[in-house]
Computed example of a mutant assay.
Amino acid sequence: MGSGIAIWQVIILTIYSMYQIMDELTLQTSLSQPIWAGIIAGLVMGDLKTGLIIGGSLQLTVLGVGTFGGASKIDANSGTVMATAFAIGTGMKPEVAVAALGVPVASLMIQTDIVARFANTFFQHRIDKLIDEENYSGIERNYLYGYLPWTLSRGIPVFLALAFGGPFVRTAVDYMNTNLAWLSNGLATAGALLPAVGFAILLRYLPVKKHWPYLILGFVITAMLSTIYGNVTLLGTTIAGMNAKFTTVFANLPMLGIALIGFALAAMQYNRSVKESNLVAAQPKQNAGATDLDEQDGEIHGDEL
């Protein structure tokens, strides 16, 4: 196809893009997350590492992005599929693919999401009529028909882009790598910074003001362990260079260890909150008309535990 993407790869990625929106709306098995989109696209394209880099970057980018009611949000899954496929097929750097393809495609897919929602109203009105007629089999059929607009809203753009957009992407990549190297480097830097944007959005909705000591503690622990593990690895490499018999391999900083430390701190805070709640419940209120100041700070306390 002129882009390093075979027709069978286009078909599989198109089918997955159609499935992932159904999974997001109904099954919710997490296969509709960008990280899984990167894994699947990477496996199909034969480069799992690139898929993980792009999928992980876009997963972190949309970490704090959500949708409420009928609102549409960026489709990071389709963006991940296209960015991974073109990055592997054309030799584009993963960081550049995230900034130049992943995020723009994810944003453009908002329009197809809106089209799918509008198209679904046709079946919704038919179901309303069938409810009055008590036609239950017709209700079930039209419910299933509603899958068509959703799946096509993802499948058609992904198929057209992968099947016919390859030559354009390859030409653009070659031009950027030769005549616009500064732009390519800038996009790579922007792509590397996008996960920080996702964290910033997430922190905006978390009770950071109340639990800021844990935020500082987590940062310090991660920085210290990263420095220690980095120096130990460097020391091992130096010794190995001096002594050929030294074959010990030092592992890098395990992120699972950092996650377990965070889990332990969260468990401690949870137990403390439960004890405080029990004490408050056991004591009679001194002033029944008093207003809890914690309810006026604008935070969602139901999610803090």
Rank of each mutant, 00 (worst) to 15 (best):
A87E: 01
G64K: 11
T222I: 02
V10I: 13
A172N: 05
P149V: 02
A83E: 09
R126F: 02
D294S: 09
L265V: 13
Y270Q: 09
V105M: 09
A188W: 05
A240I: 02
S30N: 14
G69N: 12
A37H: 10
V115F: 09
L194A: 14
Y229T: 07
I139S: 06
Q9H: 04
K73C: 06
M45S: 05
S17D: 06
G230Y: 09
T227N: 09
G42E: 04
G302H: 04
N120V: 08
L235P: 15
T171R: 03
L162V: 04
F159E: 03
T222N: 04
L215E: 00
A71Y: 07
G56E: 03
I5Y: 02
K209R: 13
M242N: 11
S30V: 06
K285F: 15
S273P: 00
F199C: 12
L130T: 11
S17Q: 08
Y214P: 02
V105T: 07
T247R: 06
T189K: 04
T90Y: 00
L63R: 07
G155P: 00
A85Q: 04
F118N: 10
E295H: 03
I39E: 10
P195A: 11
L60Y: 12
V103L: 11
F118R: 14
Q9F: 03
N231G: 05
Y214N: 07
A163Q: 13
D128T: 09
V197R: 15
L162M: 10
M1S: 14
R117F: 09
V169K: 03
F246P: 02
L260P: 10
W182R: 05
L253A: 13
V96E: 15
V96K: 12
K49T: 06
T121Q: 09
W36D: 01
V44N: 14
M109H: 08
D292G: 08
T84Y: 00
G165F: 03
T238L: 15
T50G: 13
N185M: 12
L235C: 10
P207F: 02
S57K: 01
A100S: 05
G91C: 03
G79V: 01
N287R: 10
D128W: 15
A223L: 15
A172F: 12
G155L: 12
V280L: 13
G42T: 02
T121F: 05
F86Y: 14
A282K: 13
Y147T: 13
A172Q: 07
